[in-house]
Design a protein around this nucleic acid. Sequence first.
DNA 1: GTAGGGTTAG
Length: 608
Amino acid sequence: MSQRAAFCGIALIRRGIAPQFSGNFVLPNNDPLFSSTFHTSSHKHGPFSSKPRIDFSSINDVDNAVCLFRDMVRLRPQPFVFQFNKLLTVVVKMKHYSVALSLFDEMRQLGAPVNEITMSIAINCYCLLNRVDFGFAILGTFFKRGSEPDVTTFGTLIKGLFLVGEIAEAEKLFKKLLSEKLCEPNEVMFLTVLNGLSKAGHILAARDLLGHFENLSCKPNVYAYSAVIDGLCKHNMADDALHLLSRMIEKGISPNIVTYNSTIQGLCNVGRWKDVKDLLNKMLDNKISPDVRTCNILVDAFCKEGMVEEAENVLGIMMQRKVCPNIVTYNALIDGYCLRGQMGKAKRVLDSIADRGLTPSIISYNSLINGYCKRGMVDEAWHLFLDCSCKGLQHNTITYSTMIHGLFCKGRFADGWKLFNDMEARCIIPDLQTYTILLDGLCKTQQIAQAFSFLCMMEDTGVNPSVIAYTIVIDGLCKGGKLEIARDLFNQLPSKGLQPNTHIYNIIIGSLCREGLIEDVKVLLTEMEKSGCAPDSVTYRVMIQGFLKRNELYNAMPLMEEMYKRGFLVDASTAYMLLDQLQLKGKDDVLLELIKKVVPKNDDLFGF
DNA sequence: GTAGGGTTAG
């Protein structure tokens, strides 16, 4: 403990000698560290109460709080329980949850006063540390003491369940509270549940609950509507979000900047620019000014669509309206220029960030590194990668994944693996995307055995391989002529809880065609239709190409007829293969007629 | 008297 902290601990506590009459009066004391108001604490402690007054507002760090606590537990008579609670709250507000919990433990051991609120604070700390289970253990002590948890305590536990992803349990507890009338739910509890459901993607449940909430005496507020609108927007249900926005206005709840920002984001996600414009105007009519987040949503959306000029216009408007761009604005702009391959402009944005009094973040670097890698400019990307460390920025999982992917795309597999080793040495945890990139690297270099052990390792480390990860390995197996192993792996997908998609079917089907296993192809096509992923133009393309490689034109021809019926056209490489066949066969009107049907009309392929 | 609540980046 520092000397300064020890001093503060003592200075923050002053014994109050209360006058015999009640009421507050001000002492001529200007020391900001302790309270200048006294009041009679309690009749229980006699007319000359010696209970200390403690000023919590001047605690500025956690050390400070801990030494104040040490002083408090030693004081006799003991401070009131609410004073301990206030101190714990200060520690919680500083986000030192574990510290708050050890103080709570100490209180119990030393016999300091503890009440329901102290226990609720402890429950909240456990919840915020993702240990709702320990929170429930404290709930047990509520009942042992014969006290009843209230709406705040239950609300905290519900939040804790949502935080660890136990959505069903959270909902169950909430419903139990309602049905068994264990507490009267209030605005905060509704908001906790609405937020939890929305964030977990249970958006319809959230919307239903909001509807129910509207019929109660405690009505939903702007936060409640905003939470559900945000959830709807994140699930591309922009119309439902707009509908809810009108409904909240009808009910007299004014949307705030957050409500508008969420809705604008939702509309941008689905490219409804006209609605975005209308909503921005509505927002201005309601005297709500766009903030930096509103502008960033627009800059980001325009950049993602490749409409960088529009993004630049937004930046101009920001300047006019004195909305100061932040690092997120510039990061979006870097992404926008990268997407259009304007690498010089992107680099100049990065270089200008510091001149604007901002600090580039690792995300700024990630964006530009990604841009360079996508353009195959791996050396430039590598230069930036090294530059991060010079600028005091820590590479994260994305930086490494992006760079490894860039190196692999250039065939620099050894360099990529070296970087992965470096990543592991620096304890930067690979995520699903990192593993997917590595799997791709292994398959592209035909290291199938290693790819399999990678899949197992992923499962062991709790990073469950996605359909994409399996697709990569199955594709690698097919290309390596190991069709049987590929089919085995493919057949295992449902048992791993994964639904095969059209892409993965296409890989297997293409491989089957190249092997001439037409009966198996037929089975798989039926299975595909049944499972709801319809064959697409690629399915036909891989089949036609597979049969043509075997010179089985007779198998390819009915497929062209089927393609035509379904309104699919072939791509250029398939078209060239078909034209080759035509040349080989000489004049064949039936074949020519078929080819004309499936080759794009305006394509420059017919040189005859 | 003291406890729980909403938006942005690959």
